[in-house]
Design a protein around this nucleic acid. Structure first.
Lengths: 222, 222
DNA sequence: TATCACAACACCTCAGACAAGTTGAGGAGT
DNA sequence: ACTCCTCAACTTGTCTGAGGTGTTGTGATA
């Protein structure tokens, strides 16, 4: 027998409204129907609707102005980031990684310091030894890519990359275990080319190399 | 003369409660006095206290359990991600936005459905009326850009974009207030070109238009 | 001592009333 | 024809009173 999950109506109403907001029923800045309209529509009393609205207002999603109405101010504050990533398809995550990393590569080409370039080259060297085992190889690869993102001097991009790692790492390890490393030398040279483009301060080329490499990786997972 | 700042009692009550919680009047996990006690103490009605509590519950500070009471669950939870974004320079955030949105534009060109294309065009139309006020214009613009990200059919990218909005929106409004809209018609045509590229399923062109537009925006902020 | 019934108390929900702010239509005056 | 003003019809804000449901500690009972 299913345990009766009793949730306050106000919470349910808030969840329902949030769903409709995220579904695009009301765009950003748009006005919601009045409380007196919403209440019978949701099958609850007006005060309950008000409490649901207050709840979403506390989360920054809604804002109400007396006399004018209730307005959408955001489409949900960052939902638990971990949850989103865990649920997301690995290909989806890689696509996001492509977005972050190609841009980071371009910025890194413009902003990298000599010291960072040196660190990149060292990371590249330790990356090229897959004999140490799959996990070590993946870790070395991740460390290399992180060097590049760091060199972009953009805290947000770095933070995003770090957020991806926990989801990416196991997937990479699985992939390498199942599928042969498919031409490691070529793969390694792609990385070397990327570093050289950054060294030459050629941001377009760096972005292109980064994209090519990661797209190949994505294809390999499809 | 000071502008009469009329704030809803519920908001004031929430602020007051949050202050007392932060002041350590009730420790983490402790139970607050009942609504019937709090109401006369704050000089407001019971429903107003309830709305204040709901608001704080939405922020994750309080949690109420029927029959048991209201408990402190956090001392104002500044989620890590929020902190990063709030602290980050707006230019840094825009650079991250460029990464997300150009990739999203390219993917949207490949994956958009006819319905989504229609929604894009409608959002573009409502976007083109800056007479409605700065805030409305920014909201319409955000809604337009979100349509494109949505059409990329990548949940992670969408989530990232949504995460940026709360930081981006006020910055955009400030910028438009301080600096004249600088050639709105051109700006609007750039958006139209982007939509057409997506309509034509030309992902390279879409990415290029997106990047050009956002880079101009970034320059304008520097 | 261990168990159980129960009363007190908590939050949950509703309905109704009135206050106060906002907006747009339409009339008065120029 | 245009501007300004009034006002009615919205909207959200607040309070009150009533009854419902879940929780917890107390005290009687075995």
């Amino acid at each position: 027998m299913a345990q009766v999950r009793r949730e306050p109506l106000a919470d349910q109403a808030a969840e329902l409204l949030l769903g409709r907001i995220r579904g695009g029923e009301w765009a950003l800045g748009e006005r919601l129907p009045g409380e007196t309209t919403l209440a019978p529509q949701l099958g609850v009393g007006r005060s309950t609707v008000r409490e649901a609205i207050r709840q979403l207002a506390g989360r920054g999603v809604l804002q109400s102005r007396q006399g004018a109405g209730v307005f959408v101010t955001a489409l949900d504050a960052p939902e638990d980031w971990d949850v989103v990533l865990r649920r997301a398809d690995i290909v989806t995550v890689i696509e996001a990684r492509i977005a972050i990393e190609t841009e980071a590569a371009a910025l890194a080409a413009e902003r990298r310091t000599p010291a960072q370039l040196r660190l990149m080259r060292r990371a590249l060297a330790t990356r090229g030894t897959p004999e140490a085992g799959v996990e070590a190889h993946v870790d070395a690869d991740m460390a290399f890519h992180r060097q590049i993102v760091t060199a972009a001097h953009n805290e947000v991009l770095t933070e995003l990359f770090d957020g991806f790692v926990p989801r990416l790492r196991p997937a990479m390890i699985d992939m390498l275990r199942l599928r042969p490393p498919l031409d490691e030398p070529t793969d390694h040279r792609a990385h070397a080319l990327l570093v050289e483009a950054i060294a030459a301060r050629d941001s377009d080329l760096a972005a292109r190399h980064s994209r090519t490499h990661l797209t190949a990786l994505k294809e390999n997972l499809t």
